[in-house]
C-alpha cells in the first residue's frame, strides 16, 4: 500500500495502471496517476484548518498567492457531500471530532477525481453512526467506478463492502478470492492459519471453532 501511494519506493516488481507499466517514486507521482490514499493515521496537519488540509500540496493559487476563499468553497462542497453537519471550516483540525477528521481525510482523497482509492482501516477510529456513513460513501464511490483497496481487520466490513478479498499473512500474500466463492470461515482460515481455501481441511475449520 505504501509503495502504491508513493510513500516508499518499491524493492521489486512492477505496477501497471490500465495495463501500462508506471513508476511511482513519490506521493506526487501517485497522485498524478489518480491514486489517492486515506491513511489509518489520517495524515492531517493538526494545526491547519480543513481547507488547508484538503488542498495540502495541491493549493489553489491566484497570481502565485494562495486563494483561500476558493479552497474553502471547494472544501465546503466536498465535505458537505460526506457530512452535512460539518461547520468548522476555520478551526484547526486538532479541534475536530474523530468523524470530522476522517471526513477531512476522505474529502482530500475524493476531491481530486481519484481513479484508485486506498483506504487503510477507514472506520477503525469511528463510532457506529459514523462507520455507517463511511460504508454508504464507499458503496457510492464504488458505483461511480472508482477502484477501492479497503484494508480492514473487520470480517463483516470486508464481506459487506468488497468484491475480491486478498489475505496477507506474515507479510506474504496467502491468496486472492472472489467474495461469492468463499465463506467467512474459509477467509478466517486464511487469516488465522495462513492457508488458501483449497488447502484448508475440515479439521482446520473445526479447530477454528474449537
Amino acid at each position: 500500500m505504501r509503495t502504491l501511494s508513493g510513500a516508499r519506493p518499491p524493492d521489486s516488481g512492477q505496477i501497471a495502471i490500465n495495463s501500462q507499466p508506471v513508476t511511482i517514486g513519490n506521493p506526487r507521482d501517485a497522485k498524478a496517476l489518480g491514486i489517492e490514499t486515506i491513511y489509518q493515521t489520517l495524515a492531517l496537519a493538526d494545526n491547519l484548518d480543513a481547507p488547508a488540509n484538503v488542498f495540502l500540496g495541491r493549493e489553489v493559487t491566484a497570481a502565485t498567492t494562495l486563494d483561500d476563499a476558493a479552497m474553502e468553497s471547494a472544501t465546503r462542497k466536498v465535505i458537505g457531500r460526506l457530512n452535512p453537519n460539518f461547520k468548522n471550516f476555520k478551526a484547526p483540525v486538532l479541534r475536530l471530532s474523530g468523524g470530522q477528521r476522517q471526513a477531512v481525510a476522505i474529502a482530500r482523497a475524493i476531491h481530486f477525481n481519484a481513479r484508485v482509492l486506498i483506504m487503510d482501516e477507514p472506520t477503525a477510529a469511528l463510532g457506529p453512526a459514523e462507520t455507517a456513513q463511511v460504508h454508504t460513501l464507499i458503496r457510492q464511490l464504488k458505483s461511480e467506478g472508482i477502484g477501492i483497496f479497503l484494508v480492514s481487520h473487520d470480517i463483516h466490513d470486508v464481506f459487506d463492502l468488497s468484491e475480491r478479498i486478498s489475505v496477507m499473512y506474515h507479510g506474504k500474500l496467502v491468496g486472492t478470492v472472489n467474495k461469492n466463492d468463499v465463506t467467512t470461515d474459509e477467509v478466517l482460515g486464511m487469516i488465522i492459519l495462513g492457508k488458501p481455501p483449497t488447502k484448508l481441511t475440515q479439521q482446520d475449520l473445526a479447530e477454528l471453532h474449537g
Binding site: 501511494s5 508513493g6 510513500a7 513519490n26 506521493p27 506526487r28 497522485k31 490514499t37 491513511y39 493515521t41 489520517l42 495524515a43 492531517l44 496537519a45 493538526d46 494545526n47 491547519l48 488547508a52 495540502l56 500540496g57 495541491r58
Partner: peptide
C-alpha cells in the same frame, strides 16, 4: 506550517 503540524503528513501530501 504543515511540516510543523505533522512532518509525515506533509511528506505524504507530496511536499
Amino acid at each position: 506550517y504543515a511540516i510543523g503540524g505533522n512532518p509525515d503528513a506533509a511528506a505524504l501530501a507530496g511536499i
